[in-house]
Design a protein around this nucleic acid. Structure first.
Lengths: 208, 208
DNA sequence: TCTTTTTCTGACCGATCGTGCAGAAATACC
DNA sequence: GGTATTTCTGCACGATCGGTCAGAAAAAGA
């Protein structure tokens, strides 16, 4: 009788099935968007029945919201790991590498967040204006401090972060366009060249 | 009896109503996506009845497709206008300015194309692999030639173009996130700072 | 083994949405 | 003014989709 989403500890089956649904939902939502996706598609991708999906989650929107929520931490971790103690250029280039790695290995997550923000991010709510803003302001301050110390060229740290987001995520979100324009090129080459280009840009821009 | 979309010349009413529908559709589609948008929403935004919408277009998808088609030319014009005869850095910075202007003045169009590509671009079809690829290859060759002549630093021209797309369109597509992170800042300031940053990056990266 | 709890399914409902169509209303044409 | 054409609406159908619910099936617990 007890609902699956209750407060008590989840059973093995609950953990496995909910994980399978998340995985399937990531597939479907990242490809079709929240409204374009159907419960049937998610169910089929997860190998479950539609009613069984509803058994584990309170409807489609709940899956979507919880999925976003569950991915958020990992998504911003590279920026969180940018350390004031390291070498300035190293820290920033490492951040770029990790963002490029995510574009390569987690394009579905990238597209999911992109679509959400693109369409008004009603579900990310104050995550953006509070948590994310706080994090970015903190790291921008770190970078600004490096600039004051003369260890980096002086440019706007916020827009620096935006430009890194833009350039790296571009290769996940618009990979289709990139592939269309570049023509048949090995996937590894594509990402290696892209990362090399971005690193080159930033080295030039940030060298004091 | 003659359908509105026939081959004969359109009447004044047809031109006006179809334009009104395009305008409304741009509003709704850019905000909700193809599947999230409904004919009723478009009809209301256009000040027409749903059935009247169908009278002028062969269904929802037709509006979407024709809208994309009608915007494509204008969308790529800045790149098309990049001239081999001008000063290399001037040409590229002018391109950036025009792209930033579009992000500022045409965010709906930017989001429309972004969403379309993000979700597989089934309607842009060979527009990407043929027309766009041809155009980009042509301009990349122009830029590469400038580099051979020693008038620009040598970097990958394709990824240079991608990075300009990424950075400029970022301020249209993810404006919500940018605003959330920057906090309350005048819109003009936001775009001016962004353009200044991008120009600064590119000048540093491209100076021979 | 027997009972309890969890997990899953079949049948179904209400709402939404895209679309078709006959005919009314408005406009253009002669 | 009368006819032809275009423009618009009322009505309604069929399909899709999210969600409900009773109860079967399976698993866990005793």
């Amino acid at each position: 009788m007890a609902k699956a989403g209750s407060t008590s500890r989840p059973t093995r089956i609950q953990r496995e099935k909910r994980q399978a649904i998340f995985e399937a939902a990531l597939d479907v939502f990242s490809e079709k968007g929240l409204r374009g996706a159907t419960l049937d598609q998610i169910a089929e991708a997860a190998g479950l029945s539609k009613q069984n999906i509803v058994y584990y989650f309170n409807g489609k929107e709940a899956i979507y919201s919880e999925l976003l929520e569950s991915l958020l931490e990992e998504w911003v971790r590279p920026l969180r790991d940018l350390s004031a103690d390291g070498d300035p250029l190293d820290e920033i280039l490492t951040y770029v590498s990790r963002k490029m790695e995510m574009s390569r290995e987690m394009p579905r997550e990238s597209r999911l967040f992109a679509t959400e923000i693109l369409h008004g991010a009603p579900r990310l709510g104050n995550m953006l204006t509070e948590d994310l803003k706080t994090l970015v302001d903190e790291k921008a301050a770190v970078i600004a401090n490096w600039m004051v110390e003369g260890r980096l060229a002086t440019i706007d740290p916020h827009h620096l972060i935006f430009s890194i987001w833009a350039m790296t995520q571009h290769y996940a979100d618009f990979d289709l366009q990139v592939q269309a324009v570049l023509g048949p090129v090995r996937s590894e080459t594509r990402f290696e060249d892209a990362e090399g280009f971005i690193r080159h840009m930033l080295v030039r821009a940030l060298h004091p």
